[in-house]
């Protein structure tokens, strides 16, 4: 029984790194338990009183967060060996000591904070948007069938959190693979009635350096994605689309998008 005098403690071990280049090290912490705590509230507890488990004063731990409801993707980190969002990781459901580490697939900025710029660069590279800018009003686009809209909505849930890149064996510092998330966005925007008007551009972009062909079908991404996005189905579907695009490119067809 936990009494008022002896508070239950939460054991946390954090893989810390002071600067992008410095050597990382493990530091242990103990924070007072409160009901319904999540990893972020435990980290906030450490920030309030930056003293490690040996009772020594230390620097507050750095991490990223924003929405606190698993929709922005900023707070992703490796928790007990699995990449996931720290805001939705409940202390009661985690084995202690809870081990927190940054997603090493990305450059570490500091402690648990990583730089996910490569994901945003990939989204730019694959043109993950619907181009409608121009000098006059283009009017309404074609309608999207409702059932297709519901399906596309699932793909649109991606929050660029980086968990699928961290899970993929082929995304690492020795390879240029952009990873599953931007690929699935190509499928989303190619399925959009207006977006599909530029689908050849997106397909050609993922047929370049670091693109689709780097996938080796380990299929960890689809297991790891917190949003349940059918990433491996998207990849296989894009494999078919790029097969067709490859023949169009090769045999010099003048049909660009249809």
């Amino acid at each position: 029984m936990v009494t008022a005098t002896e508070t239950k403690k939460v054991q946390i071990e954090i893989f810390r790194q002071d600067t992008p280049e410095s050597t990382p090290y493990w530091e242990k912490f103990e924070v007072n338990y409160r009901p319904n705590m999540n990893v972020i509230s435990a980290l906030m507890e450490i920030r309030r009183n930056p003293v490690n488990a040996d009772g020594k004063a230390t620097t507050p731990v750095a991490w990223d967060m924003s929405c606190l409801e698993e929709v922005c993707g900023a707070c992703s980190m490796v928790i007990n060996g699995k990449p996931r969002q720290s805001c939705s990781a409940l202390i009661d459901q985690l084995v202690q000591p809870i081990k927190l580490a940054p997603m090493k697939t990305f450059p570490v900025v500091r402690d648990l904070q990583v730089d996910r710029t490569r994901m945003f660069d990939s989204l730019k590279k694959v043109k993950a948007w619907v181009p409608i800018d121009g000098s006059y009003d283009l009017g309404e686009g074609p309608r999207m069938p409702e059932r297709k809209r519901q399906w596309a909505y699932e793909l649109s849930k991606c929050m660029t959190c980086g968990v699928c890149l961290e899970a993929c064996p082929n995304v690492n510092s020795g390879a240029s693979f952009m990873g599953p998330a931007p690929l699935s966005q190509v499928r989303l925007f190619n399925a959009h009635p207006t977006g599909s008007m530029n689908k050849d551009e997106r397909l050609n972009a993922i047929m370049g350096d670091g693109g689709l062909a780097n996938c080796g079908n380990a299929q960890n991404c689809v297991v790891a994605c917190p949003k349940g996005i059918p990433l491996t189905t998207s990849i296989a579907a894009l494999n078919r689309d790029t097969t067709v695009q490859m023949f169009k490119n090769f045999f010099g067809s003048d049909h660009m998008v249809d």
């Binding site: 064996p169 082929n170 690492n172 020795g174 080796g216 380990a218 960890n220």
Partner: peptide, 20 residues
Amino acid sequence: IAFTAKNNPQRYGTLRNYLF
């Protein structure tokens, strides 16, 4: 191709990851 992968079976012990 084989040497560009960084295998992680201890993290994801799924059939497909092992087959990979």
